[in-house]
């Protein structure tokens, strides 16, 4: 197995506060590794270190075997797709321009970009003719999130980062998006690193779950093992799952 991303004894400190403590973790090619944790557990920080939005205080993060500090920052980011909860679609660009952004920055010719944008919209379940000319404000939350995923896939990056991408949509749409995400992951055989605080989502999407607690890696396990984990934090998350099923509408 080949590690596409490696965290090696990564620490991250802001002032006197440790956000990440000695994180060592490998993301294998083709897998969907879910970083699960409470708010403030350091999961987003870890994610942002992969594409060089942040750099470790000590230790290193390697992508394709090379430390992120040794990559050209722009090259590194263009090789990695990135989807955040707020999506961050460009409001002054149409869906086509949003999806085609990285290809355009990479200098693809317009006909190829257009074709690619159409293909990707179809992939994420949006009718190209109908949606390519629209602006983000003309889309629903779920549609925006789909466009965000299509945009991250545009230049066919080997690695995708997701930061609670489905956190802001309604529960029904979320389940739909999660299903589609899982199917998409199988189709495209991409490597994904996925941040969430939703244990149900983690269990559904992950090949492995890395549970972070106070900046430390608490448990690293496949979903089946995770369910049987004796770790206190894992139990706390799983208890949340029961509670959710009892009361959530």
């Amino acid at each position: 197995m080949n590690a596409l991303v490696e965290f090696r004894q990564v620490c991250y400190r802001i002032g006197a506060r440790d956000i990440l403590r000695d994180l060592t973790l490998e993301v294998e090619e083709g897998e969907t590794l879910v970083l699960l944790g409470r708010s403030g557990s350091g999961k987003t920080t870890a994610l942002r270190m992969v594409n060089g939005m942040l750099f470790p205080t000590s230790g290193e993060v390697r992508v394709e075997g090379r430390p992120t500090t040794a990559w050209d920052p722009v090259r590194l980011k263009r090789r990695i797709g990135y989807v955040i909860q707020e999506i961050g679609l460009f409001p002054h660009y149409t869906v086509e321009q949003n999806v085609g952004l990285v290809p355009r920055l990479e200098g693809w010719d317009p006909a190829r970009i257009r074709k690619r944008a159409g293909e990707l919209l179809t992939r994420v379940g949006l009718e190209p003719e109908q949606f390519l000319p629209r602006y983000p404000r003309q889309l629903s939350g779920g549609q925006r999130q789909r466009v965000g995923v299509a945009r991250a896939l545009a230049a066919d990056p080997p690695l995708l980062l997701f930061d609670e991408p489905f956190g802001a949509v309604d529960p029904v749409t979320r389940t739909e998006l999660q299903r589609q995400f899982r199917a998409l992951g199988r189709d495209l055989a991409k490597t994904s690193l996925f941040v969430t605080h939703d244990v149900r989502e983690a269990l559904m999407l992950a090949t492995r779950i890395a549970l972070l607690h106070d900046g430390r890696l608490e448990t690293l396990a496949a979903p089946g093992e995770f369910l049987r984990s004796g770790s206190g934090e894992a139990q706390a998350f799983l208890a949340g799952l029961d509670w959710r099923q009892e009361t959530a509408g």
Binding site: V74, I84, E86, I87, F90, L105
Partner: peptide, 22 residues
């Protein structure tokens, strides 16, 4: 919107592209 800026940077826009295109 900070999210727009964040995704522009994360998509590999250079400082100049961020300024002029976004």
């Amino acid at each position: 919107d900070p999210a727009v800026r964040e995704s522009a940077v994360a998509m590999g826009m250079t400082g100049r592209q961020l300024l002029w295109r976004v």
